[in-house]
């Protein structure tokens, strides 16, 4: 086999621990073979990249996800974000300089998977325009309309928070960690990622399947199990972005 140029970019899919091999059948971005690169005591799933950019296409997005998913039955990986292209030297430096934080991250997600819950609702109907303009000045009409809008915002916020609380109570005791985003003004009112220990996944599914029957006014999009994308790098990202060690 020809030697790789030292500046050859590696497309990096995820980091793994305690993994000795990868599925030789799995193909990565641009149908490239995937290999396991060992750095210190950790591993990284990579493929050689002939290009310096990675287009976001259906095939590439699915390939990225499929490579990471291919090891999920054997270990809990720390996924890299789509488009991570580095030289081997950069990758080695990154891991060596952050090894304690990476090990902490591995410990946090070990033996877990991520389950995703998205809740969609029909936003409450907007209030009808003021129908009494003849007896009110323009300023009064404007203020009345503004008051109704604010009341609507508060009502939506209260409803969204109630949904978030309901979901949290539904899965309480079944999650090790969670990331929840609530957007009262959006149709996608809640997006949650739950870190669930593998043995608890069936019970988690049953709980949500039963619970959602009680909320026919809401639409649910439940998916998983995923590798722990949402729990990979909160601490690390902060350190990377702001140089805090």
């Amino acid at each position: 086999m020809a030697a790789r140029p030292p500046n050859m970019k590696l497309y990096s899919y995820c980091m793994v621990e305690e993994l000795n091999s990868v599925d030789t059948q799995i193909r990565g971005i641009s149908d490239a073979p995937v290999r396991l690169l060992n750095v210190d005591d950790l591993g990284v799933l990579v493929s050689d990249s002939p290009s310096d950019t990675v287009p976001i296409t259906r095939d590439n997005a699915f390939a990225h996800a499929a490579v990471i998913r291919s090891v999920l039955d054997r270990t809990t990986p720390l996924p890299f974000r789509f488009g991570t292209l580095v030289t081997e030297q950069q990758l080695t430096s990154y891991i060596s300089s952050r090894k304690p934080a990476l090990q902490t991250n591995f410990a946090a997600v070990r033996n877990c998977v991520e389950m995703s819950v998205k809740i969609i609702w029909q936003l409450p109907m907007a209030q009808a325009p003021d129908t009494q303009p003849l007896t009110q000045g323009v300023g009064t009409t404007f203020l009345a309309q503004k008051r109704r809008e604010l009341a609507g915002d508060e009502r939506r916020s209260a409803q969204a928070e109630e949904i978030a609380t309901w979901l949290k109570e539904t899965v309480t005791g079944l999650t090790r960690d969670e990331r929840v985003t609530v957007r009262p003004a959006q149709k996608l009112v809640l997006s949650a990622a739950h870190l669930v220990e593998r043995p608890a996944v069936p019970e988690y599914r049953e709980k949500l399947a039963t619970a959602r029957q009680a909320r026919p006014e809401l639409h649910f999009l439940l998916s998983g199990p995923w590798p722990p994308y949402s729990f990979a790098n909160i601490e690390l990202e902060f350190k990377t972005q702001f140089g805090v060690s």
């Binding site: 890299f80 488009g83 991570t84 580095v86 994308y229 790098n233 690390l236 972005q241």
Partner: peptide, 14 residues
Amino acid sequence: HVLNRGLVIAGEIT
């Protein structure tokens, strides 16, 4: 999942 989340090596997303 793949675009919004995951480990980031600063400056290396292409």
